[in-house]
Each structure stands twice: as C-alpha cells, then as structure tokens.
C-alpha cells in the first residue's frame, strides 16, 4: 500500500493541500522506508514494515493498530 504515512489521515477540514499531499505525494526513496503491508492471504493484519529498498533488508515489523495506539 506504500508509505506508512497513510496512517496519518488529515482532519476533515485540513485543506486541499494537506489532503493532496496525504493522498498523492510519496517520496520514492532508495534506502530506508516505512511501508504499510497487508497479510492478505493470512490473518489480514496491516503491518508497518521498516525496510531498505536497495538491500531488501527488513529491520522491523509492527502491527499498524499498535503503531496508531502509540501515537
């Protein structure tokens, strides 16, 4: 699903620039990223995965709802 920034949904009245950035603007990073993954054919969990797009190394994976709760 792309960047874990999808977790940070703006308020309804945040304005079109904020909403546009939330929905459409993603950095295409060669290096460390935080992704949102879905365990689609399994337990249906959404996971925040910290990984490297060059080496494919996975540093850490957390359940998305726990990341949200910690915010």
């Amino acid at each position: 699903m792309g960047h874990a920034s999808m977790l940070n949904r703006p308020e309804q009245d945040a304005g079109k620039d904020v909403w546009n950035a939330y929905l459409h603007e993603r950095a295409n990073i060669a290096g460390d990223v935080e992704d949102l993954w879905c365990h689609d054919m399994g337990c249906a969990a959404w996971i925040v995965v910290r990984r490297n797009t060059i080496s494919h190394t996975i540093y850490e994976a957390k359940l998305a709802n726990e990341v949200r709760d910690a915010d």
């Binding site: 699903m1 999808m6 977790l7 949904r9 949102l36 879905c38 689609d40 249906a44 969990a45 959404w46 359940l63 998305a64 709802n65 949200r68 709760d69």
Partner: peptide
C-alpha cells in the same frame, strides 16, 4: 472491500 475495512479499522480507527 474486506481489505479496505481492515485497513480503515486497523490503520485509521483502531480505537
């Protein structure tokens, strides 16, 4: 839709 519902619940409205 099922995947979307899981996304919304886990990522946007876990509370």
């Amino acid at each position: 839709v099922m995947k979307h519902l899981e996304f919304v619940h886990q990522c946007l409205r876990p509370e």
